[in-house]
């Protein structure tokens, strides 16, 4: 009898476990389903697919874009944090290439450049390329950086743990660690603006329309005109990152 009773309790215990474990799971899941529905999330399902075009031979290197980006997005003022910046390339006749970007180009460029013969020289605005295959998203250990359905790569500031993997992984050097929030930061295509129908701040202030923003596959988009009239290139195509920032008249020396 004693033995029987003992067997029974174990059986009982097992039964209880077998029943309660799924019950807990179910409860948990049920709760999370409710929880997921509760916060007011706006619908992000509209079919956007954003991209930017940059016409190198129109850029005058005034740095208004760098300046506007910093003001619009509260990018730290120190000279080495940028969401967008402008580089000057000087290709000399002996094929030496000089690249510089004092203060990201935000205060313009000195006009006195080297005395040696210049073969060609031009400005190259740069920013996050919002790749379709973003290496930075792949390496994020917590899912704090991600591609939205409209093709923009964003950083979840509240969820980022500041491990810097993504900064290392970006082949374009487009990310930096924000010294105040201690999280990764980079260009968002001014997500808060474009979803309200405005242009990104850099596009807004560009005086020569060197930057063009719009939908990639819409027939009636400024980008479509850009694609029709220009031969476009992306940066580092051999990495297969599939950038969404397209350059017209890009020089082979540009890295």
């Amino acid at each position: 009898m004693k033995k029987d009773k003992k067997e029974l309790t174990r059986r009982e215990f097992l039964k209880k476990c077998a029943v309660s474990a799924p019950a807990v799971l179910l409860l948990a899941e049920a709760e999370s389903i409710f929880a997921k529905n509760s916060p007011e999330l706006s619908d992000h399902k509209e079919a956007h697919y954003f991209g930017m075009g940059i016409q190198i031979d129109k850029c005058i290197g005034c740095g208004r874009c760098v300046n506007a980006c910093k003001l619009e997005n509260s990018v730290p003022d120190e000279p080495f944090y940028f969401r967008t910046w402008v580089e000057r390339y000087v290709v000399q006749v002996d094929n030496e290439v000089i690249v510089e970007s004092p203060h990201g180009g935000g205060e313009g460029f000195p006009s006195n450049i080297s005395e040696k013969g210049i073969a060609r020289t031009f400005f190259v605005p740069k920013l996050c390329n919002h790749c379709a295959n973003p290496p930075c998203v792949q390496v994020c250990p917590v899912g704090a950086t991600f591609s939205t359905q409209d093709g923009v790569v964003l950083v979840d500031e509240d969820y980022c743990i500041g491990c810097r993997y993504c900064i290392q992984a970006c082949p374009y050097g487009a990310r930096y660690l924000n010294p105040f929030t201690k999280t990764a930061d980079k260009c968002t295509f001014c997500y808060h603006r474009i979803k309200k129908g405005s242009n990104p701040a850099c596009v807004e202030v560009c005086p020569t329309k060197a930057r063009i923003f719009g939908e990639i596959s819409l027939r009636s988009s400024p980008l479509t005109r850009f694609f029709r009239f220009n031969k476009v290139q992306v940066l580092k195509p051999y990495l297969n990152t599939e950038p969404r920032v397209y350059y017209a008249n890009l020089d082979g020396e540009v890295r």
């Binding site: 916060p39 999330l41 992000h44 619009e72 591609s147 939205t148 359905q149 997500y191 808060h192 309200k196």
Partner: peptide, 23 residues
């Protein structure tokens, strides 16, 4: 809201979109 649209917090999109405009 993690996982609503993908491997990320869907609410992050809203907090990024709520950033005030300056221009």
């Amino acid at each position: 809201t993690f996982g609503k649209y993908g491997h990320y917090r869907a609410a992050a999109i809203d907090s990024i979109m709520s950033q005030p405009l300056r221009y």
